[in-house]
Design a protein around this nucleic acid. Structure first.
Lengths: 142, 142
DNA sequence: CTCGTGGTTCGATGACTGTCAAGGTAGATG
DNA sequence: CATCTACCTTGACAGTCATCGAACCACGAG
């Protein structure tokens, strides 16, 4: 998974640049490029299994879940779960870290928040003010 | 499109029941059924063209856009645009109405808001990054 | 080092999806 | 009526995706 995190970082950089800075959907039309980047995230969430995986990880005690915890929930083979986790990973929605025998996944709440912000129709108040953490994206594992 | 709005309403009812009432992703794991319903919406948004269509409609003057306004933006045939609009419609994200010769689409801000709420991590104090610059987007004519 | 367990990658396959060309429907206009 | 415009549906095709079994890699324990 180590060489993949490289590619993963690239995706995340693009996402941070596009998702993180673009106005809400209803504010101004997305450019072709922006829509391509954003749609990657939505496509990753556009599968029931992946959405449930995301939710299982996000709501799991400690904010992280071992793959072995996730596999049992579904009537799917190991490779299939692994595939879906990879898709979520490449979309930047989760990060994985190996600790000993097990691999633990956790969500990236910042990305979820950004995507959520894009969806919300012209924020009722205070869309601006709060340059907060435009590039405070936590570095992926070690 | 009249008989289709019937089916469309059904989908919306389901969505309202599932999306509208379920806790944020990170709060508790989605049930299989919930994830199926929710993933429909995300899948609809998981295509660059559809995402851009959504954004074009949402940001269009008056909150609605005629199909003829949308077709010109893309290098795609009419039927293809029509297909994507149908997908968005069936996902409950937009509604269409014929007025005379033209068909006008508008987004359902309530659904967008619900989906957005599902994404936001339970934590009440995790704001999205909103630097708000970048607005060299070609405005879609009048 | 060898073995067993946990996860991932590979290759194949059946299902789904985005796209277009052709044809159809609804309304306006002559 | 005839005709034109705007939009949708159908049918077909190529590309993508979800899924599995088999093989493979990473660790920890003997």
């Amino acid at each position: 998974m180590s060489k993949q995190d490289g590619a993963q970082e690239q995706v995340l950089a693009q996402l941070a640049a596009v998702v993180g800075c673009c106005a809400p959907l209803a504010r101004e039309p997305l450019t072709a490029e922006q829509s391509v980047e954003l749609s990657r995230v939505f496509k990753a969430m556009g599968d029931p299994v992946r959405l449930r995986l995301l939710s299982l990880i996000a709501s799991h005690a400690g904010g992280e879940a071992c793959v072995c915890d996730l596999t049992d929930v579904f009537d799917l083979s190991g490779p299939t779960i692994s595939h879906h986790l990879k898709v979520l990973r490449e979309a930047g929605l989760i990060t994985g870290e190996r600790r000993g025998t097990w691999v633990y996944y956790r969500v990236r709440p910042d990305l979820l928040a950004q995507v959520s912000a894009v969806l919300v129709p012209a924020a009722p108040d205070s869309p601006a003010a709060m340059p907060a953490d435009r590039d405070a994206l936590p570095v992926v594992d070690a």
